[in-house]
Design a protein around this nucleic acid. Structure first.
Lengths: 194, 194
DNA sequence: CGATTTTTTGAATCATATCAACGTACGTGG
DNA sequence: CCACGTACGTTGATATGATTCAAAAAATCG
């Protein structure tokens, strides 16, 4: 089961058989049922989660009770409350399974240890942090420059696999609009096409 | 001049005198005049810039010509188009000096080399990427959950030094609103206070 | 100083939210 | 495997936060 994550890591840094063995052993496989939480507010996020198979949604709830989706993660993506995990502070986000899923998780202490021990793992985590940074920068730009409809069209064309797998209210709150408005956008689009 | 950046790096990783010497020599000091660009669209961002003294603004221009501020950087902050720098692809952003400034810049190849050579530098850049990630996550949450007025109040209380130093139209576009609307918010606030 | 850039103000308009009600689909227990 | 309840998506009417445009006022700069 850890073969997949080793393969993933090898896309970024070449590993010896011994290193593959080591890094594989750092991750624990966990089955998560739909609607189960893997991160909750006020608890420190102890793990960084790699999605082996399944789908997750990270969100916050505003003062008025509304949920705002911060991120999605499906097969081969990572998810956690980074602010909580990196600084080992209480989380502000929920991370919940949208389907029955399998994750591979590494805990904070173990991650620190293997980064300290082996330059290659330090490099690997540096690379995924940088990629996350670039990814989020693109999202910030999209949010600032595009209308609700453009953000939706853009997201559908870039991440069709996610659009298909997540509930519409979650997608709407990710894109910064209400469920109702997203519904109207979709209907408009369908009637345009036909 | 490079003492300051070495001191900054030492906050995250302890260095020997030799390493201090080495990392200091990787940065080049450059004076930048107000309104001068250090990153421009279509050119690959060759450098990561540390602001020794001064103020910068990173922004994109949308199809309709409107400018949207992506980031600010003042003394002791870093700035570049990360998407361009990390992947060495053509930039989409401008980065411009808001005042006469002094920066310390490291070029992509040099950075790669010192990260490869010394575990500590790899660690350092991993840490700043992670912090950037956490920082941007907070911004995304703020944009999704708060009204224009709340975003402004929040930003003023967290980054008063920046609010004081950047033009209002730049701040407005950073916070995702028009200059006019920000002006109205500020006036409302002043009259409330008195 | 005059010229340019930035901020302010007012009025009209627009994109999106809200609220309420209804239709649909799904998953869960019997 | 059906039926029921809850979760999800749609639609219409109305409300509102924020934008747009235009023009004046204020601040900054050479």
């Amino acid at each position: 089961m850890t073969e997949k994550i080793v393969e993933y890591i090898e896309k970024f840094v070449k590993l010896t058989d011994e290193e593959k063995q080591l890094i594989g052993s750092c991750f624990k496989e966990v089955k998560i049922k739909k609607r189960q939480f893997i991160v909750q507010p006020n608890f420190t996020a102890k793990y960084r989660h790699y999605v082996y198979k399944g789908a997750f949604r990270a969100y916050v709830t505003a003062d008025d009770g509304q949920e705002h989706t911060i991120n999605f993660a499906i097969d081969d993506w990572w998810i956690t409350d980074y602010n909580s995990y990196i600084f080992q502070q209480p989380a502000t986000m929920f991370v919940v399974a949208l389907e029955d899923s399998i994750i591979l998780q590494i805990d904070f202490e173990t991650e620190q240890e293997i980064k300290r021990q082996n330059h290659k793992f330090e490099t690997f985590f540096r690379i995924i942090a940088e990629r996350g940074l670039a990814f989020q920068q693109r999202r910030i730009i999209s949010n600032l420059t595009q209308t609700a409809e453009e953000r939706y069209e853009n997201y559908v064309s870039k991440y069709p696999q996610i659009v298909q797998r997540v509930p519409q209210y979650a997608l709407a709150s990710f894109l910064g609009m209400t469920t109702e408005f997203l519904s109207r956008i979709r209907n408009k689009r369908i009637s345009k096409k036909s």
